[in-house]
């Protein structure tokens, strides 16, 4: 694995509210390398989601900096942030968040269409992605015609469709039974190996975390353990 740093987080602090401020993140420092497969764990309310939102450029920090591929994302315009989310980042949430009016294939095509890829090419890439997650035969199904595990696979295919450098997952298996969880974990692991993309997964499933390369433990918005 290369030693190329893809994410550099410095003194990252996120304070919510002004009356009785909550320090959701409290001076986090973290370096992540390309191709890493890491888990963020910690008790509920420890700031895991907040950290992912920061890395995913969905939120802005109160102070501190985040470099993605050497670029400080905290100083970007709204437009650049959108473009960056589209091209460099893939998101998987606890709930699949597929667009209910679109079928599996169209859902996977969406990030490609957003970035301006021609529909014919987007369809081809999306088919390949669906094949990779084992749902080639379900491309015409809508989310309400698929199981929870299948929908989460479609969501994964969608997160990877635009070949992002970084894939972040906030409890991607939190809503699934243990068998489906294992399958999803195996799938993510395989995709990580095949595409050499960086995977950052928040989980409270210790078993799952143990299977990753590196575990970051957060408590009260601080990194208390970094093992890998």
């Amino acid at each position: 694995m290369s030693e190329e740093k893809i994410i550099e987080i410095r003194d990252l602090t996120r304070i919510y509210g002004d009356g009785a401020p909550i320090r959701a993140l409290d001076g986090v420092n973290l370096d992540i390398e390309r191709g890493e497969f890491l888990a963020i764990i910690g008790p509920s309310g420890s700031g895991k989601s907040t950290l992912l939102h920061q890395i995913g450029i969905l939120d802005t920090p109160t102070s501190g900096t985040i470099l993605l591929n050497g670029v400080d994302i905290t100083k970007m315009s709204d437009r650049e942030r959108s473009r960056m989310r589209n091209e460099e980042l893939g998101f998987i949430f606890q709930y699949h968040h597929l667009l209910p009016d679109f079928n599996a294939l169209e859902n996977v095509m969406m990030p490609l269409l957003i970035s301006g890829v021609k529909p014919s090419r987007a369809r081809k890439i999306a088919r390949e992605m669906l094949e990779e997650v084992g749902l080639a035969d379900r491309e015409g199904h809508r989310p309400n015609q698929l199981s929870g595990g299948q929908n989460q696979r479609v969501a994964i295919a969608r997160a990877l469709a635009n070949s992002p450098d970084i894939v972040i997952g906030d409890e991607p298996t939190g809503n699934l039974d243990s068998r489906a969880s294992d399958n999803i974990y195996e799938l993510l692991r395989r995709l990580n190996r095949e595409h050499n993309q960086t995977f950052i997964l928040v989980t409270h499933d210790e078993q799952m975390a143990k299977k990753t390369d590196r575990i970051i433990r957060l408590v009260d918005g601080r990194v208390v353990e970094d093992s890998g």
Binding site: S82, N86, E87, L89, Y95, L99, P100, I114, S115
Partner: peptide
């Protein structure tokens, strides 16, 4: 609302 959030996460600009 949730869909709009996901579209934003996928990089849809506010203009779009």
């Amino acid at each position: 609302v949730g869909e709009i959030g996901m579209l934003m996460a996928m990089g849809t600009s506010r203009r779009s």
